[in-house]
């Protein structure tokens, strides 16, 4: 490919990422505002609220950390709980690693820096559609550079203006809805569906586990269920062919 054509296709990938993630922007508004307000209540100050949004870029862990700080929990427990909420990103990190085999060390830092639920799943979906061949990083950065500034801005408005949307609008519900809309089309096999069902049920049952460990325990459980179903299905087909 000529240099100019390559540059054009890189730009097209970036644009595709922007367009994909612009659709997620409404779901960031309520949660970003709430996180900004919560950071103020936890005593981070306006600039602390902006900094945590910019450098952690992980809403649910920000919410957990500030909630723990506000309730007077020890600093280490607050940080640790926030980090346990983010442990799921280690799974994303492992899942994305084989997809970026050719990335340079600098590029790997970029992949890691913006790895959140939304950027990860957008990238997975693109991969499944088979559009990943050229410029995976350009697409990813299109996604990340749409969502990240918007996330920081929403947190800042929450912190500086104390702005909240009317609760009756239920706009915070757009977060789980966006996850549903992103993940359901990616479910391809019976084992994946059963892993999701088991993970969801365990997520509810283990919700109250200390240090927010329920999430990661539910992930492990759902994965085990999926692997078991895989093994059973394999057994059945091998019996059928015998």
């Amino acid at each position: 490919m000529s240099n100019a054509a390559d540059q054009a296709s890189s730009r097209a990938s970036f644009k595709a990422g922007v367009i994909e993630c612009l659709q997620l922007i409404p779901s960031y508004i309520p949660f970003g505002l709430v996180c900004g307000v919560a950071a103020m209540q936890a005593g981070l100050g306006e600039w602390g609220a902006v900094a945590i949004a910019a450098f952690a870029f992980a809403g649910s862990s920000q919410a957990v950390l500030t909630q723990f700080l506000s309730s007077g929990a020890p600093l280490t427990i607050a940080i640790l709980s926030g980090l346990v909420v983010n442990l799921r990103m280690a799974v994303y990190s492992a899942a994305i690693a084989p997809r970026i085999a050719g990335a340079t060390p600098k590029e790997r830092v970029l992949w890691a820096a913006f790895l959140v639920d939304q950027t990860f799943i957008s990238n997975e979906a693109r991969h499944q559609r088979g559009e990943h061949m050229n410029h995976p990083l350009a697409f990813y950065l299109g996604c990340a550079l749409t969502l990240w500034p918007w996330w920081v801005l929403m947190n800042a408005i929450g912190a500086f203006a104390g702005a909240k949307l009317p609760a009756s609008w239920q706009l915070d519900f757009t977060i789980p809805l966006s996850f549903v809309a992103m993940v359901v089309p990616l479910l391809k096999s019976r084992s994946q569906i059963l892993a999701a069902i088991a993970g969801g049920a365990a997520g509810v049952l283990l919700y109250a586990m200390p240090l927010k460990l329920g999430l990661i325990a539910a992930c492990a459980l759902g994965t085990c269920v999926g692997m078991t179903v895989d093994a059973l299905l394999k057994l059945k087909t091998s019996e059928a062919t015998r």
Binding site: V91, D117, S191, A196, A198, G203, Y207, L215, G222
Partner: peptide, 25 residues
Amino acid sequence: ERALQLAVPAIFAALVVPLILFQGN
């Protein structure tokens, strides 16, 4: 690699279902 393909739906479900069904905690 297979375990990861299963861990992703499991973790999203564990994240999402409480967000849908819980009021407060």
